[in-house]
């Protein structure tokens, strides 16, 4: 389910079935590196939307957690931990973070949720069919991460 009124309504009605939160993490860089930052956001947006299509009934796709790329410090981590806390308090059992910001890999241990880090693939040169095929193959690999995690807890 997406962060849209009608989807959130369905979520509220079927809370016991929707136990997984997906939070995209966007690193924003202004100035030098602005293009890479935008390309990474495009990639993560397409990827998480496609992922949401596969698992509509069990995940709630949150709006992206956005922070300044050169500010990867304690404050960002504390903020994300606050998100995590409220998400878990709301009854979600699993939290997944999807990002292409490398910095998070060293911080993975400090979060309860699962971090999925993917190197951003520049999509601007591709046409729609290529994009779809590429995102599809990436998501197929992610699906097992989710199903395994679910099977362990069910």
């Amino acid at each position: 389910m997406k962060w849209l009124p009608q989807d959130v309504e369905t979520y509220s009605a079927a809370k016991e079935y929707v136990d997984t939160a997906v939070v995209p993490l966007y690193s924003i860089t202004i100035g030098k590196g602005v293009k890479q930052s935008a390309a990474a956001s495009e990639f993560i947006t397409l990827l998480t939307n496609y992922l949401e299509r596969q698992f509509t009934g069990r995940i709630l796709l949150f709006p992206p957690f956005t922070y300044l790329g050169n500010e990867q410090d304690e404050k960002v981590l504390t903020d994300l931990k606050k998100w995590e806390e409220s998400i878990l308090d709301a009854g979600f059992k699993h939290v997944f973070y999807v990002t292409s910001d490398f910095e998070w890999r060293s911080r993975e241990g400090e979060l309860n949720g699962t971090l999925i880090w993917l190197p951003a693939i520049p999509l601007e040169q591709m046409n729609d069919t290529q994009k779809l095929t590429m995102i599809d193959s990436q998501v197929q690999q992610l699906l097992t991460i989710f199903t395994q995690k679910w099977q362990k807890s069910d």
Binding site: M1, T10, A14, Y17, V18, R53, Q54, F55, T56, G57, R58
Partner: peptide, 9 residues
């Protein structure tokens, strides 16, 4: 391919 339960694929 849309599941009639909650819409997964």
């Amino acid at each position: 391919p849309v599941c009639k339960h909650l819409g997964c694929t």
